[in-house]
């Protein structure tokens, strides 16, 4: 199950994570371990528990059973789907806030990316379209200077240009000392980037699949493999 490439040590994951909402069990003893940096996907159908898992891994949701391998959440950045910005906050205020309270937050890089996308720093965050807001959250997470970056559906609502920007940014930032853990339904977008992936189904995580190995051995794309695994094997 371990991610065994010769890269920087990360050691991220969880053991027997159990979470329920009311009577519905969302995560049922999900376990995984990632030991090296890179880009790793978590794929699953709607309602599989991907967002719940990221909420737990980021430390935002502390009410669960099980244990986490990394509990220093100050070293984890998270671009969640849910908004966490105060409605009266402007982009520049948020950048200043993060620059003050998050070590390694690269404000200038984000400013450059925003300018390229023609997003004014004076804009109120709530006034941005959902796509631009998603892009802004993505930038804030990846340039946050953290060694683990969790991205929840980073491609949702993005137009083709911004999708390209997200992919290019991830390519630029990938190094052996950082882990990008990404949940998405847009597997095609991620296919050429990821080192490997897990499939979340029935509240549990599959074994780790090495993307290169899957494509090399089966001759199928990651998306095809995923679809077959989920539908035919019914995991």
């Amino acid at each position: 199950m371990a991610y065994e490439e010769n890269r920087g040590k990360i050691n991220f994951g969880g053991e027997l994570i159990y979470k329920r909402y009311g009577k519905k069990t969302v995560l049922n003893n999900a376990s995984f371990r990632i030991e090296r940096g890179g880009i790793v996907g978590i794929f699953g159908l709607n309602g599989a528990g991907k967002t719940t898992l990221l909420n737990i891994l980021s430390g935002l949701d502390g009410n669960f059973k099980g244990s986490l391998l990394k509990t220093d959440f100050t070293d984890v950045a998270y671009a969640s789907q849910k908004d966490f910005f105060p409605p009266d906050m402007r982009i520049k205020d948020y950048l200043n806030f993060e620059a003050t309270f998050s070590e390694g937050f690269d404000k200038e890089k984000i400013r450059g990316k925003l300018a390229a996308a023609k997003i004014s720093e004076k804009s109120f965050i709530f006034s941005l379209s959902s796509g631009l807001k998603q892009y802004f959250k993505f930038l804030s997470a990846v340039f946050g200077g953290k060694s683990v970056v969790l991205l929840d559906e980073p491609f949702s609502n993005l137009d083709v240009n911004l999708r390209g920007e997200v992919v290019n940014t991830l390519i630029d930032l990938t190094d052996e000392n950082r882990l990008f853990l990404i949940t998405t339904h847009e597997i095609k977008e991620l296919e050429r980037l990821i080192d490997g992936f897990f499939i979340l189904s029935g509240g549990a995580l599959s074994e780790y699949y090495d993307a290169e190995e899957i494509v090399g051995k089966s001759g199928k794309s990651v998306e095809e493999f995923y679809r077959e695994t989920v539908n035919e094997k019914n995991i």
Binding site: G59, L60, F73, T74, Y78, S80, D83, F84, F85, P86, P87, D88, M89, F97, E98, F101, S102
Partner: peptide
Amino acid sequence: YRTVTDDKLFKKARI
């Protein structure tokens, strides 16, 4: 107002 709006951000910033 600030408890409702800002606290999500502060929680995320680990304050």
